[in-house]
Design a protein around this nucleic acid. Structure first.
Lengths: 151, 151
DNA sequence: TGGGAAACATTGGGATAGCATGGGCAATGA
DNA sequence: TCATTGCCCATGCTATCCCAATGTTTCCCA
């Protein structure tokens, strides 16, 4: 598997840790064996966005220009970095979810991982289910075509 | 972590010292173990800009060319250097914030560190929160997605 | 086809190290 | 001499790491 796929459900323990689903963990593993990612509150949905470190770095690369006087750059930097949390998995493949992000996503003791290809999202299970259902409904009525796809 | 990320909150003690958040401190640490940075009042916002020494040097390098003598260069040099404070952390990773900068940022006994990737900013907590909120609002209306965003 | 065994994934808890913070002491300058 | 600044040591707390156990799935073999 080279992309985050499927839906997984794991448990938050008393210390705020969750096991990253094993298939996802394999994708996150760096050459040195470390499993690093960046967690952010989604700005559009009540969930946590999870970025593999390389993907996040690619995303933020355009903001690294030494440009002191661009307001737009400043804004983007704040939006991107100020509420991002770096995370590294322990030896068992668990990460600690920061309190703020748990609140944002309304997490209880069960969490759902939604694979999204290059990234994945962490949801409260009920909210995840509703979200997926509504997305499916929207797609059914809109009938979008995949770029480069078949018919 | 290779970039300043996240929001941290620490306390100013009676002597005007603050602990630099540990993740930031790790990024600031030079080869010789020293933790040096440059503090400046932001010209656009009521906060303190904090630059790692190497980043500040890179920023100012273009101004150091001796063959450039324009008024604009002079102005930039003044703006950059005139109110910049060099700072070095003590053994516990704390720095003393100059009185002038504390006033500029309106700091009380609690301070908020905003990670911005290459640099970070030091804010009065309430002001920081309002600032981040307004930035988010501005971005939401200006640009629905971050560059390259979404999976 | 069924049973058994082994590997893996997720979860739990205890110990350790590091962080933020407070206070005291010495050096410096007024 | 006094006030102020900077350095160093000490402490409580928290987060992190490490070790251990259980349940599940997969694979292999009879």
């Amino acid at each position: 598997m080279s992309q985050f796929m499927g839906t997984h459900q794991n448990q938050l323990d008393g210390k705020g840790r969750v096991s990253i689903p094993a298939p996802f963990r394999a994708l996150l593993k760096a050459a040195d064996g470390s499993v690093r990612l960046v967690l952010r509150p989604s700005h559009k949905r009540p969930c946590i966005e999870a970025w593999p470190l390389p993907a996040f770095e690619a995303l933020s690369a355009p903001l690294q220009r030494l440009d002191l006087f661009s307001e737009e750059q400043d804004d983007l930097a704040v939006a991107l970095f100020a509420d991002a949390f770096p995370a590294e998995a322990d030896k068992e493949g668990r990460v600690v979810l920061p309190e703020r992000l748990k609140l944002h996503a309304g997490l209880g003791s069960l969490v759902t991982f939604l694979g999204l290809g290059r990234t994945f999202e962490i949801w409260e299970p009920g909210a995840a289910e509703r979200h997926v259902a509504s997305v499916r409904a929207r797609i059914a009525e809109r009938r979008p075509t995949l770029p480069g796809g078949g018919a």
